[in-house]
């Protein structure tokens, strides 16, 4: 399959049988006291280098999935494997290979200075002082925050805090990044900052991006839709616009640009600028 616009071809990792990094087989999990499983017989495979979007309504099991993958929760039945390790049995092996960025940056930053926060995850890994400094510098650079080492986290904007949290995960150099609604607490500018940094990781890392915002994962290799704890669909982002029924059943709404494009019969447009070009292409003024 020819790469599209210079990017890695969609689904290449999965289709070429690339190294399987995340694997769930028949996974079921219920919260204590709840009669309904939060995750219900879930099968999921993510290969090295893939960028996978995960959509689903509130209560669909998206965040539970993130917690099962990093061993915060233990499956009642079925099997979870991350790079060959069971997260519930060997959480430390898993957490150096899979990092989770959660919604609220305020719950993730603890140290007095940015550099300590970014280094926090390295302290249990037996990394030398020297190497730690290098990794912190590289991670801050990767999120566009070079020079922020001695800043105090509480003085940062929401977008900056979330990028510090992301740097802390990148410093551990995990193979897989799980992003659990990473922008839902951010303002428009913060959201843009974080999304730019995430999109720069494309191809370098394996990414599982959980979100309510369909427009954040229009570039994904494939999109998974969870509902009631089950995987109800798996498709390419372009196919979403042709599945109004599927969207409605899963309480999903296309972002305005895609809805306008669909209503005008103009196909798949990711941004206002793309849509404006498509409209201009229909008319000679």
């Amino acid at each position: 399959m020819a790469p599209e616009g210079g990017r890695p071809a969609r689904g290449e990792g999965a289709r070429s049988g690339g190294l399987l990094l995340v694997c769930c087989e028949g996974v079921t999990y219920s919260y204590p006291g709840s009669s309904r499983p939060a995750i219900d017989r879930l099968d999921l495979r993510v290969s090295a280098g893939e960028y996978v979007g995960v959509l689903g309504p509130n209560g669909s099991g998206k965040s539970t999935l993130a917690r099962l993958l990093n061993g915060l929760l233990r499956a009642d039945s079925g099997r979870v494997l991350v790079a060959g390790y069971d997260p519930a049995e060997e959480p430390w092996e898993v957490r150096r290979r899979l990092g989770v960025l959660f919604q609220n940056p305020d719950n993730q930053l603890l140290a007095p200075f940015v550099e300590d926060d970014v280094a926090f995850g390295l302290e249990n890994l037996g990394v030398s002082r020297e190497e730690m400094r290098g990794r912190v510098r590289a991670a801050l650079e990767a999120v566009g925050l070079s020079g922020f080492e001695r800043r105090e986290p509480h003085t940062l904007s929401g977008g900056e805090k979330q990028r510090v949290a992301l740097a802390g995960i990148l410093a551990v150099e995990p193979e897989v990044l799980v992003l659990d609604e990473p922008t839902s607490m951010l303002d428009a500018a913060g959201r843009r900052e974080v999304l730019e940094r995430i999109s720069a990781l494309r191809g370098e890392r394996t990414v599982v991006h959980i979100t309510h915002h369909l427009d954040e994962i229009l570039d994904a290799d494939r999109v998974l839709i969870l509902n009631g704890g089950r995987l109800v669909a798996e498709l390419a982002p372009e196919e979403l616009v042709r599945e109004p029924e599927l969207l409605r059943e899963n309480r999903l709404v296309l972002p305005p640009v895609l809805r306008l494009a669909a209503a005008l019969g103009l196909g798949f447009c990711r941004t206002p600028e793309e849509l404006a070009r498509a409209i201009a292409g229909q008319r000679v003024w």
Binding site: G56, P57, N58, E181, H212, R251, L252, V253
Partner: peptide
Amino acid sequence: TAGLDPFARA
């Protein structure tokens, strides 16, 4: 509507 799915937002 922060953190709500699109239907709940609507």
